[in-house]
Amino acid sequence: MKIIKDDLAGTEIKALLQEHLDDMYATSPPESVHALDVDALRRPEITFWSAWLESDLVGCIALKSLEPGHGEIKSMRTANIARGKGVAKTLLQHLVEQARSSGLHKLSLETGTQAFFAPARNLYLGYGFKECAPFSDYRLDPNSVFMTKCIKE
Rank of each mutant, 00 (worst) to 15 (best):
A35I: 12
A99S: 03
L125V: 14
Y138E: 13
L104V: 00
F135T: 09
K14F: 01
S32K: 11
L123C: 07
I81R: 15
S108M: 10
M24S: 15
A118E: 15
R43E: 06
W49K: 02
S102W: 00
E153F: 11
A26N: 13
G126Y: 10
L53Q: 12
S101T: 10
A35G: 14
F48D: 02
L109K: 04
A133M: 15
K152P: 05
L17M: 13
I13Y: 02
D39K: 08
F116L: 08
T111M: 11
I3S: 09
K85N: 09
M1C: 01
L66S: 06
V87Y: 00
N80H: 14
K106N: 06
K14P: 03
H94R: 03
F135C: 06
S144C: 12
P29T: 12
T90V: 07
M1P: 01
G128E: 05
D56A: 15
K64P: 02
A88F: 01
T111Y: 02
G126K: 12
L17R: 11
I3T: 05
E153Q: 13
K89L: 05
G103Q: 04
A15Y: 05
A99E: 00
T27K: 06
K130N: 12
E31Q: 10
S108L: 09
K14E: 13
L63P: 05
Q98T: 02
V33Y: 04
L92Y: 03
K85S: 13
G84C: 12
Y25S: 10
I46L: 01
W52I: 10
E12D: 14
I3Y: 13
D23V: 15
L57H: 07
L140R: 09
A82E: 10
E72Y: 06
D56I: 04
F117E: 14
T90R: 11
C150H: 10
T113R: 05
A120F: 01
L53H: 12
R121I: 12
A62W: 03
G69S: 11
L36S: 03
K106G: 02
E19F: 12
I4W: 09
S75G: 07
P134H: 07
I46N: 00
V145H: 03
K130T: 11
R77I: 03
P68I: 01
N122W: 08
A133S: 14
A99D: 00
A133L: 15
L123E: 00
D7A: 05
S28N: 15
T47H: 08
P29S: 14
P142D: 14
T47L: 08
V87H: 01
A115D: 15
L91K: 06
E54I: 11
T78D: 02
W49V: 00
H34T: 14
T11A: 15
L95N: 01
V33N: 04
I4G: 08
P142T: 10
L53T: 08
T111V: 08
F48N: 02
S75Y: 06
R83F: 09
A115I: 14
Y124S: 06
Q98H: 09
P68R: 06
E97C: 05
A35M: 07
G84S: 10
E131Y: 09
E131V: 13
L140K: 10
I61G: 10
R121A: 08
V58E: 02
S32W: 08
R77T: 02
P119T: 09
V58S: 08
L16A: 01
D141H: 13
R42D: 00
M24C: 14
I151P: 13
L41C: 11
K5S: 13
I3M: 09
S28G: 03
